[in-house]
Simulated scan of single mutants.
Amino acid sequence: MSGGIARGRLAEERKQWRKNHPHGFVAKPETQQDGSMNLLQWQCIIPGKAGTDWEGGYYPLTMHFSEEYPSKPPKCKFPADWRPAITVKQILVGIQDLFGPAYAADPAQTEGYHLFIQDTAEYKRRVRLQAKQYPATI
Rank of each mutant, 00 (worst) to 15 (best):
Q109W: 09
I5P: 13
D53W: 05
R83F: 14
I86D: 00
P60L: 02
P107L: 04
H23Y: 06
Y58P: 09
K75E: 09
K28G: 14
K132C: 12
Q118E: 14
I138L: 13
M63T: 05
G3T: 07
Q16H: 01
H64V: 08
P101T: 00
G112N: 13
L92Y: 05
A108W: 01
I91D: 01
A131V: 01
K75Q: 14
L92I: 08
D34Y: 09
I117N: 00
Q90G: 03
Q118L: 11
I117T: 12
R128E: 12
Q133W: 05
Q118C: 10
I86M: 15
G100P: 01
K72M: 14
G56N: 03
P73N: 10
Y58G: 03
F116L: 10
H21V: 06
D34N: 15
Q43K: 12
E30Q: 11
G57Q: 06
R126E: 00
P101R: 02
K75L: 11
Y123F: 13
F25K: 01
Q130P: 00
P70G: 04
C76Y: 01
I117G: 00
F78P: 01
I117L: 13
N20V: 01
W82C: 12
T87H: 04
A85N: 13
L39W: 11
K19F: 03
T52C: 08
L98E: 03
E122N: 05
A27R: 01
E12H: 10
H23W: 02
P22G: 06
I5E: 15
R18H: 00
T31L: 11
M1D: 14
S66C: 10
M63V: 06
G24N: 06
A105Y: 05
E55N: 07
R128M: 10
K124V: 11
Q41I: 10
L39M: 13
P60K: 04
E13C: 05
P74F: 02
L129K: 14
L40G: 10
R126L: 14
K132M: 12
G8P: 06
F99L: 08
K77N: 12
L10T: 07
Q130V: 02
K89C: 07
P73Q: 07
A85M: 09
R14D: 02
E67A: 13
T62D: 11
A121D: 15
A104N: 13
E67H: 13
V93W: 00
I45N: 07
G100L: 04
G112F: 03
S2N: 12
G48L: 07
P70Y: 03
E111L: 06
Q16K: 08
A11F: 09
K132H: 08
Y113G: 07
G51M: 03
P60R: 06
P29G: 04
C44D: 10
P107C: 04
T52S: 06
V93C: 06
P74H: 05
A85T: 13
D106I: 02
T62S: 08
F78L: 08
K75P: 00
C76D: 00
P47T: 04
A131C: 09
P29F: 00
L39E: 08
Q90V: 05
L92D: 04
R125T: 10
S66K: 09
E111V: 05
D106T: 04
H21G: 11
I91E: 00
Y59R: 02
S66I: 07
V127H: 10
G56C: 05
S36M: 06
E13Q: 14
A104D: 15
Y123N: 10
G4Y: 04
Y103G: 01
M63A: 14
F25Q: 03
W17G: 01
L129I: 05
V93F: 04
C76L: 13
